[in-house]
């Protein structure tokens, strides 16, 4: 900008106030304003991902040694006979957990909101109790449920069933039951998150919509279907994205509850990745698996995002 043009513009345009000036600068030169975020994301998120991508094409091992670029790790992982089983486990575990957490979270959130609307006492306590499960670390969650599911005579659930005259259930030793047990443990822990997200969405619905619907003659289920669900649709979708990624990444609860067993019955992708790197010391193979995990998570998130409303409020 020449001096003459700047003086003209200064004369012609009233001097913008400091805020507008900053906004103007941010719009014309965005890079300096974005740098801090770019640096942090680049250093702590992007670099590890890119490095994993690089490692996937090497023969890197945790035990060290010379790194050579090759497709061997990729070929080995993708032809591993365990991979279909692991992917199948992951699909069942994730689908059941997400559906279970959403339904339970929705149910509890509806109960709490309804209770609060009718000023029922104890709603805060209920919310807190549900949240308590969420703050339990994943490993502790696995330990808690391994005590509950324990097939020893002192196992909490089996001894309770025994009091009712029901034969002990092999919660963790039967392959099918083990998967169900892991899913139950994960739903128990994850429901609180869905409950809070949905609860917040429900609280945001204008009460008079229900009144208008009631005057319009809508039955309770119609009010739920035509008011509640459309109003919390976005929250449900975003929640689905978040808990899907969360569940795909879950391995702490599984490792402490079943360790992936019996056999590979509950070995999910994240646990398989962990085992590959830290039990087999196969850094390259683990990198391939983590990229697979990332691709699956991105694909699912993209799928959900297709249903998000666009360009309208």
């Amino acid at each position: 900008m020449t001096s003459s043009s700047s003086s003209v513009s200064a004369d012609a345009v009233p001097r913008p106030d400091a805020k507008a000036g900053l906004m103007g600068q941010a719009q014309s030169h965005p890079l300096p304003w974005l740098m801090p975020v770019i640096v942090v994301i680049g250093a702590f998120y992007l670099y590890p991902i890119l490095d994993a991508l690089r490692l996937a094409f090497t023969n890197a091992s945790l035990t060290g040694g010379e790194e050579v670029y090759s497709l061997a790790a990729l070929r080995a992982v993708l032809t591993n006979p365990a991979l279909p089983t692991v992917l199948g486990n992951t699909a069942i575990f994730t689908a059941a957990s997400v559906v279970g957490q959403m339904l339970l979270g929705l149910g509890i959130a509806l109960l709490v909101v309804r209770g609060e609307r009718n000023s029922l006492p104890g709603m805060l306590v209920l919310r807190t109790i549900v949240l308590a499960a969420w703050v339990v670390p994943g490993v502790a969650n696995g330990v808690i449920w391994s005590m509950l599911f324990s097939e020893a005579p002192f196992g909490a659930i089996n001894s309770t069933l025994g009091l009712m005259g029901i034969a002990p259930v092999s919660w963790l030793s039967s392959p099918q039951n083990a998967m169900i047990s892991v899913i139950i443990a994960n739903i128990w822990q994850g429901t609180a998150f869905s409950m809070i997200v949905i609860y917040a969405a429900l609280k945001g619905i204008d009460e008079t919509l229900y009144e208008a619907a009631a005057v319009d003659g809508a039955l309770p289920w119609e009010r739920f279907a035509f008011i509640t669900l459309p109003q919390i649709k976005v929250a449900l979708l975003i929640n689905a994205i978040l808990i899907t990624i969360q569940t795909l990444n879950t391995f702490d609860a599984v490792i402490s509850l079943t360790g992936g067993g019996p056999g590979r019955a509950t070995e999910v992708l994240s646990l398989f990745t962990y085992n590959t790197v830290f039990n087999n010391f196969d850094l390259a193979g683990g990198s391939v698996l983590s990229i697979v995990l990332l691709v699956i998570a991105l694909a699912l998130a993209g799928l959900y995002a297709l249903f998000l409303p666009r360009g309208e409020k």
Binding site: D206, T208, L209, E211, A212, A213, V215, F226, I227, P230, Q231, K233, K313
Partner: peptide, 12 residues
């Protein structure tokens, strides 16, 4: 039939 202060139109 009722007309509400904030109209209570179904936004979706």
């Amino acid at each position: 039939a009722m007309v509400f202060q904030n109209y209570a139109l179904y936004p979706h």
